[in-house]
Computed example of a mutant assay.
Amino acid sequence: MTQASLYIGLMSGTSTDGVDAVLADFAASDRPAILGSISLPMPRALREEFLALNMPGPNELERAALAGNALAELYAQATLAMLESAGVKPAQVRAIGAHGQTVRHNPAAGYTIQINSPALLAQRTGIAVIADFRSRDVAARGQGAPLVPAFHHAIFSDTQPRAVLNLGGIANVTLLDAENGIRGFDTGPANVLLDLWVHAKTGHTYDADGAWAATGQYSPELLEYLVGSEPWFALAPPKSTGRDLFNWQWLTQRLEQFGARAAGDQDIQATLQRLTAHTVAQAIAGQAPDTCEVIVCGGGALNKGLMRDLQSLLQAHVRPSSDLGVPVQLVEALAFAWLAWAHDHGHAAGLPAVTGAGQVTVLGCKYPA
């Protein structure tokens, strides 16, 4: 391994539950070997601040700057602990790919905001940082999301039509087949509504294994209402979304509108789980009906109830990315190591077929150590 081949990927996703870090070696090709990884929980106060910054509030500029610094410190802590565990020195690493925390996403208005402090991260680690991955695609009139289809193509391509499904806070799918090339888009909520509801009703931050949902029954009528009342679901790709749309207000407003017909708390959880599976299945059936296999990654891949719902609704074999050698919770962090590698090598990862941009683009901006 050489300094030219080692990259780190850092990811804190829509669920805001923690930071994942991966150390990868790209010596052989653009298919990396994982040399180390670590996950750190998001401090409660920082998580609450990020969630608050998803909505308009007082003194946003200062609060966002301080939150970015706090995230960079957490990123640095994860990076240095992982390197020490792997026996690798910072000087041996070419660059860190750091996504930051998305708090606003409105590409139709020409912007997307990821809170981060890459210069501080470079200072704390002594490693160059590549960040700001979305804005170049948005400048080219793209969605700026999803970012990972080019990476999915690099490591998960197969001779048969295959989809790669990431179940973070938001669900996004990459469609891989030789005839139509690389396509990808967000399908709607994955864990974001599930986590909001279970936390409000039980105090738990997530529904482990879908156990709480399993004590209820999903309501076909409520599911139909949730899908039919949201025009975003009917939009054709390219499209992307986030907490700007799918949030507590979205959920409670629809439950109130559904009125006396609403089910019990566990039934609502089961219905939200079914909503994720249903919108994913509808998206894949509509855009890639010949898909033979769906590779699932992200925290939602650990939800056994959600995985059962997906298998029952998808006309394809469903299995976790760990079956292909990439742990489900490390795929996104590994993607940002790959995106850093792609930036350094001038490889265009911003794809018009995915984001709707007017041209292919090299993504990211580099902050030297």
Rank of each mutant, 00 (worst) to 15 (best):
L196G: 09
E221Y: 03
G259D: 12
Q282Y: 01
V294H: 10
D290H: 09
Q217P: 00
A262N: 05
P289T: 08
T291R: 02
G216V: 09
P289K: 09
A214K: 06
D244C: 12
Y218R: 13
A211G: 13
D267F: 02
W212M: 11
Y218W: 15
R243Q: 08
Q282N: 06
G210K: 10
T252F: 06
Q269V: 05
P231E: 00
D265Q: 13
P237E: 02
A214L: 06
G216F: 10
V198D: 06
W232C: 07
Q266A: 15
L194G: 01
P237M: 05
W250C: 10
T271M: 11
G259S: 14
D265V: 13
W212G: 04
D244E: 15
T279A: 01
Y218D: 15
A285N: 02
V294G: 10
T291Q: 02
T252A: 07
W250L: 04
T279M: 03
T202D: 02
A236D: 12
A213C: 07
G216H: 10
F246H: 14
D244A: 14
E221H: 02
Q217A: 07
I284T: 05
C292T: 14
L255P: 04
P238A: 03
T271I: 13
H278V: 10
A281D: 15
T241L: 09
E230F: 09
A214V: 03
G210V: 11
A234G: 00
V294D: 09
E293Y: 01
A285V: 01
G264S: 14
A285H: 05
Y225T: 03
A270T: 06
Q273I: 02
D290P: 00
R274K: 14
R261K: 11
H204C: 00
Q266I: 01
K239V: 10
A263S: 15
T215V: 08
G259W: 12
V198Y: 12
L194W: 02
I295D: 14
Q266W: 04
A213H: 07
P220S: 05
F233A: 07
Q266P: 04
N191T: 02
A262G: 03
F258M: 08
A214Q: 09
Q273F: 03
Q266K: 08
W212T: 12
G286Q: 14
K201N: 14
G264I: 08
Y225K: 00
E230C: 12
H204D: 04
K201G: 04
G216P: 09
V227M: 06
A277W: 13
L223D: 11
R261P: 00
T276H: 08
D195Q: 05
A285K: 05
V198N: 07
A263N: 13
D265K: 06
Y206F: 15
H199W: 03
R274C: 12
Q249I: 07
A283I: 08
K201A: 07
A281G: 15
